[in-house]
């Protein structure tokens, strides 16, 4: 795999969201993290593009994403008071989708801020 270099990459490990990181990646893993701190370096190097986990699990058994999405929709729609929680380590675009889904199923939506 050729080396790809991403300049001014953004680290989302902590609230500093440093946006001056230079990442070197070989397609599978990130090999170098220039200017990142020790936390950022371990965050970037801890995640790879390998297929290490099953795409989805239903009741602990491997399943397709399609089936898992349908099961999730059923559970959320059938609940009287579902909860949508977390949202700290996802993008703003995903957060918007989550709020939209929460509105649709009549859920409580909450983040780490309330802890």
């Amino acid at each position: 795999m050729p080396l790809t270099i991403v300049k001014n990459a953004t680290c989302t490990f902590c609230g500093c969201v440093c946006d001056d990181i230079e990442l070197h990646a070989d397609g599978i893993r990130i090999t170098e993290t220039k200017r990142a701190c020790s936390l950022g370096e371990s965050w970037f190097k801890n995640h790879t593009a390998e297929h290490l986990y099953p795409d989805a699990l239903i009741d602990g058994h491997p399943a397709t994403v399609d089936d898992a999405v349908e099961a999730a929709a059923d559970y959320l729609l059938n609940a009287d008071m579902p909860l949508v929680y977390g949202m700290s380590n996802i993008t703003c675009e995903a957060q918007r989708e989550a709020v939209s889904l929460a509105e649709l199923v009549g859920a409580v939506v909450d983040s780490h801020t309330s802890l």
Partner: peptide, 9 residues
């Protein structure tokens, strides 16, 4: 709550 969706946590 009677169902929960956890994301990014």
């Amino acid at each position: 709550n009677d169902a929960c969706l956890v994301l990014g946590a």
